[in-house]
Amino acid sequence: MSTEPKDELEGTEAPFVSHLVELRDRLVRALIAVGIAFGILAAYPGPAGLYDMLAAPLVATLPHGATMIATNVISPFLVPLKITLMAALMLALPVVLYQLWAFVAPGLYSHEKRLVLPLVVSSTLLFFAGVAFCYFFVFGKVFAFIQSFAPKSITAAPDIEAYLGFVLSMFIAFGVAFEVPVVVVVLARMGVVSVEKLRAWRGYFIVVAFIVSAVITPPDVVSQLSLAIPMCLLYEVGILAAGLFIRHTQAPETAE
Rank of each mutant, 00 (worst) to 15 (best):
Y51K: 03
D52A: 13
L54A: 15
A55T: 13
A56K: 12
L58G: 10
L58V: 13
A60F: 04
T61D: 13
L62Q: 14
H64I: 10
H64R: 15
G65T: 06
G65F: 07
T67G: 09
M68G: 07
M68F: 05
T71L: 15
I74D: 14
I74P: 07
S75P: 01
S75C: 01
S75V: 02
P76C: 04
P76R: 04
P76K: 04
P76V: 04
L78K: 08
L78Q: 09
L78F: 15
V79D: 05
K82C: 01
I83K: 04
L85N: 04
L85T: 08
A87E: 06
A88V: 00
L89T: 10
L89C: 14
M90R: 04
L91G: 02
A92F: 01
L93E: 05
L93T: 14
V95D: 05
V96G: 02
Q99C: 08
Q99L: 08
Q99F: 10
L100N: 01
L100S: 03
W101V: 02
V104L: 12
V104W: 08
A105F: 00
P106Y: 03
G107W: 10
G107E: 11
L108P: 00
L108F: 01
S110R: 15
S110I: 11
S110N: 12
E112K: 02
V116F: 09
V116Y: 06
L117G: 03
P118V: 05
V121T: 12
S123R: 01
T124C: 14
T124Q: 15
L126C: 04
G130E: 07
A132E: 11
A132R: 06
F133Y: 12
C134W: 05
C134E: 14
C134H: 09
F136K: 12
F137L: 07
F139L: 15
F139C: 08
G140S: 14
G140P: 01
K141F: 03
F143I: 09
A144G: 12
F145M: 10
F145P: 02
I146S: 07
I146D: 05
I146G: 02
Q147V: 04
Q147T: 07
S148K: 14
A150Q: 13
P151T: 12
K152R: 10
K152P: 00
T155S: 11
P158L: 05
D159L: 10
D159I: 09
D159A: 11
I160D: 12
